[in-house]
Design a protein around this nucleic acid. Structure first.
Lengths: 217, 217
DNA sequence: ACCTGAACACCGTTCAAGT
DNA sequence: ACCTGAACACCGTTCAAGT
């Protein structure tokens, strides 16, 4: 007689295990065989719950991106942009090893479109022409992705000797690694503030702002 | 008697062949075996000229990055920043499939340090405190890398039907793919202009600008 | 319904053997 | 000096076989 015989695996458990490996060992170290081992199972078993490694990664990426908050656009556009950018950045920073994957692939999933719609809608409702709304959304994304990705300061090894006196302007470069995340965050905030400041100025010059959108392009 | 017997391969030819595969088929499609086939040779032969696949990729990345121009810092800092950012972006855009690799790994090579030194030096000579010079360099890099990377508009498939009426604010989203590179470029220029505008304002508030750098942090 | 051993078509890299 | 076949330790994925 057949019993419930509760299963060893589930899509959720697989996703969690995969993200653990990504966070601790890196994206390159994630293999279906290693993941299976991590879960006390054989590689083939994973395919009862997950179609493909690539789809698994997309599912994980979507879960990470669900932390992004676009609710601020119910207030003014600048608040919406700020909350969006910061929560977006925080979501990526929580899983830095996954950023290259999230940032390279296009995102055509439901939730991702809803977010894009909220950003675009928040900006156009505030009076930005469609074309500007698109560009502002793109610019902000560049800043977030670039900031989460490059981890600018990680490029400098934590060893003053490397720089000796050949690069006089980098005499403090060896300090960067230690304060990397702090500097990364400050740089991001600086750029975000400058961007929004610049946009505020541009906003004042818009012909029909506040009025219903004029056709453009 | 031994003759010159000129070799089939060279590091240069391997690099060129690899970049051809990356540009046409994508980074994921590059394998040492496929590269060898592309060059009319066997995989093992490559290792007479190249230490490792990873090192090969770094060498290619360095060649691409050699197109970046930091000479503008000999003029004013805003010109330097603009020329740097644009040439940086152009270098990456010339080989989009390589961007994830270039952007994820730290760059501790000679040429890369020279560029960082030129940027940092140009900014500090103009009166920016060290800490700001670091942040401005980082911010600009975020913009360039994010812009070259995400290819924001590629996230929207070129099919209006997908969006139907569920996302009213994305009613022009299907146009994005067609004008993707144009919008990407305009968004980048918008953000760069806003950043530099914001920095100009900040520059005016610096305590001792023009004077020798005051010690900080 | 779910797990698995075995297999297939791939990888990057090494190395003794050839010229 | 340079190219190569064969091998090693890996991949992602499929599938018939088991329970």
């Amino acid at each position: 007689m057949p019993r419930p015989n509760n299963p060893l695996l589930s899509a959720e458990r697989i996703r969690r295990g995969a993200l653990e490996i990504i966070d601790t060992l890196g994206l390159e170290e994630l293999s279906m065989r290693r993941l299976a081992e991590h879960l006390g199972v054989r590689a083939a078993s994973l395919y009862n719950h997950v179609a493909t490694k690539d789809e698994l990664l997309h599912d994980i990426a979507n879960a990470v991106m669900d932390q992004v908050d676009v609710s601020g656009f119910e207030q003014d556009w600048a608040t919406g942009l700020t909350i969006w950018a910061r929560s977006y950045r925080a979501a990526l920073a929580a899983h830095p090893n996954l950023v290259p994957f999230i940032a390279s692939g296009p995102a055509r999933r439901e939730a991702s479109l809803r977010r894009a719609d909220a950003v675009h809608g928040g900006l156009t409702r505030a009076g930005w022409p469609q074309r500007y709304a698109t560009m502002i959304g793109a610019s902000t994304k560049y800043l977030v992705v670039g900031g989460a990705m490059g981890s600018f300061s990680a490029g400098f090894v934590d060893d003053a000797a490397v720089y000796d006196d050949r690069y006089p302007n980098l005499d403090h470069a060896h300090l960067l690694r230690r304060h990397a995340s702090e500097i990364d965050n400050d740089s991001f905030e600086l750029a975000l503030a400058a961007l929004i400041e610049g946009l505020h100025q541009l906003y004042g010059t818009l012909p029909a702002h506040g009025a219903p959108n004029s056709p453009e392009e």
